[in-house]
Design a protein around this nucleic acid. Sequence first.
RNA 1: GCCCGGGUGGCGGAACUGGUAGACGCUACGGACUUAAAAUCCGUUGUCCGCAAGGACGUGCGAGUUCGAGUCUCGCCCCGGGCACCA
Length: 816
Amino acid sequence: MDASYNPEAVEQEARDYWEAERCFEVGEDAGKDKFYCLTMFPYPSGQLHMGHVRVFTINDVIARYQRMQGKHVLQPMGWDAFGMPAENAAIKRGVPPAKWTYQNIEYMRDQLKRLGYGYDWTRELTTCKPEYYRWEQWLFTRMFEQGLVYRKNSVVNWDPVDQTVLANEQVIDGRGWRSDAPVELREIPQWFMKITAYADELLDFLDRMPGWPDSVKTMQRNWIGRSEGVELMFDVEGEDEALSVFTTRPDTIMGITYMAVAPEHALATKAATADAEVAAFVEKCKQMQTAEAALETMEKKGMPIGISAIHPLSGERIPIWVGNFVLMSYGTGAVMGVPGHDHRDWEFADKHGLPIVQVITPSDGSEIDIGKGAYVEYGRVINSGDIDGMDYRQAFDAIADKSEAEGRGQRKINYRLRDWGVSRQRYWGAPIPIIYCADCDAVPVPEDQLPVILPEDVEFTGYGSPLKEMPEFVDAECPRCGKPAQRETDTFDTFVESSWYFARYASPDCDSAMLDEREGYWMPVDQYTGGIEHAILHLLYARFFQKVMRDFGLSSADEPFTNLLTQGMVLKDGAKMSKAKGNTVDPQQLIEKYGADTVRLFMMFASPPEQALEWSDEGVQGASRFLRRFWNAVQAHVADGDAVPVDKDSLNDEQRDLRRKTHQTIAKVSDDIGRRYTFNTAIAAAMELLNAINRFEVETPEDRGVVREALETVVLVLSPIVPHICHALWHVMGHASAPVDESWPVVDQSALQQDMIEIIVQVNGKLRGRISVASDADKEAISALALADKNVQRFVADKQIRKTIIVPGRLVNVVV
RNA sequence: GCCCGGGUGGCGGAACUGGUAGACGCUACGGACUUAAAAUCCGUUGUCCGCAAGGACGUGCGAGUUCGAGUCUCGCCCCGGGCACCA
């Protein structure tokens, strides 16, 4: 072994050992406590970026720590291999998406291996392979049979020049990103999965998921957006059919001054046939963008459609408007306008000169001015006849009861959550297993004809999907009646692949079923780590799929991920590092220059995992320097001479201090890695211990024994973070075993005991002195010592002491 | 616009339950070693006043609660993530 630190050689040797010993290949062992430790799998974009290194290192640290705790750990890896970048590369470079994707996987797999992650590579998954996607095709056909999927018309962004459907990301300021042509909205039939059928369960289970961050649970709760309200029917002049609106605030019913319907609403459509101006407005609304952010920030426009609704209580006529801000997809596509008590209604009324009426007043009797803005809090009802004086709940029930009794409405629960549209008009995805027959309509592909294989040898131009031009793909036989029929050419949203891969890792080689009994051993995932940007969509879809798989008898787990760690973004120049923005830093050069351990150490030390990390090239050298110091300290210690094992009862003060520091470090690092996931402070604690070791003057074999215990502690506690160097140093210290097979060090409580402790003294909350007291000193003794301090004396002087607060073990505060 | 985070020295960050603000590291500066440089080692490093002892100020801004607030409450400002076809 080299006396100077040579990362490349050290890391090669460690990797060879892990591979030869098959350290990370695991089977199912019912006698052992399993720990399934997973990261969100990467998209094979070409090369790893810092965000990958961050998340994979976090997960590897947890996996290695749990292994040293005696757990039977599974850490698998795979590829989320379908997606748009492969199509973009194909257009740009003329390489087929499949070829580009497989090349990227080859390169990135080598990068992952070079970083020393403890993956069970025998379980590797690649979602673009038929043996993987056949099972999601199969699940889709089962969902079809169970009524969990359906087809309906839905709008897409259409680029009239490129003759292709655009993703929201490809629409820049309303124009196609390549053609720069104004994007049009087109309605086409698309497949949907009924995630709303699980809305209540997805919501309710959030309360039983203590291992998830509150922020993510809150985001999902808000996204599902369960709201209790009333659907009210309003008679419309000259119409047979009543106008129905959903409201969560029936208590404000007397504050209605207008009604607004969506541009696609039947009343608007009808009005448009009679009124050219309305027709023009409705037509203009079809140009709007589909993204919610765009809808919410755009100017709220509207116009009256010339007819009125009748207020069910007052009998007054209420003008009906058409508004671009009313969504056909939420509730009934119509809203009642209560400008006094809703922000958006207020702005709309203010802009269009509609009356604003106050019908709610603050319960505490304070005054509000409805002319300056809406009052949206719950309060006491006023100006509303029979319901005057009621609070929110009373008024809600009064209106709901009355409406239900009169057959003019009913209590209803609405969700913001919409069903999941899974159709994509793209080539590089898993084919949706449907055959269209003129007689039998949409027929799912039978199980014995699965998978529907995506042809990989295609010419990809970017003008629509090449599948449409391939008769050998499109032409099919109706599975039901045998007549000539056409295959669906749309493919699945790539979120479908990532909604069940975590379960497939348990039985990646099973070719007779989606999942087998091994799923029961490993699922649910104990620790799931990934980017905060997936807090809603991916994590909600995955939870949905898990529940579907459970209900189909494929799994018994209610939820897929027991503990969730959402790591913050790696930012550069203030923006998220992403292939889309092209501001990635290639970690490869750093690995080649400093070694994998330095990169791993720097990433874990730079900030706590949940926080955003602003990338900077500085600091990597510091990590490298620390590893060299660490290496040299162990080498020097070993060369220095023999050590005798620590005899706890015959230590001098200096030895006891170092040993206390050692065991304090074990306690600190165990808590930081095992409970808090604050790897940065764990590393800081290990650095402090190494600093203490370097300051410690070694004269005797007993001294060396205490140092040895300290150094072995540093090696073991850092081994999950910088596994290669620790592997080598463990051997340098004479061990035949490897850290990866060692047990995590245990705190010796007796080593932590201390006779004298320091306490700070405050006067009126300001630090004025420090005193050293016996650790078991009583309050009187501490108080007396505090007041005896000469600087404390200066501030207390002849002033009256009002009280003295003593926080045991911490401080004394004298209030004068 | 709505939902979820965040804001602490020159920089990344620490302070876990309301109790020493700035651990650990980087940078910078000074010193040692060297013919020299690199590397390494030692020291200093929130701002201001002071020879020192020590003091005043200081956690985005403004108020409040408390013996005591980076931490809790209210109101603002700024930055990041998500908003359903980026993954």
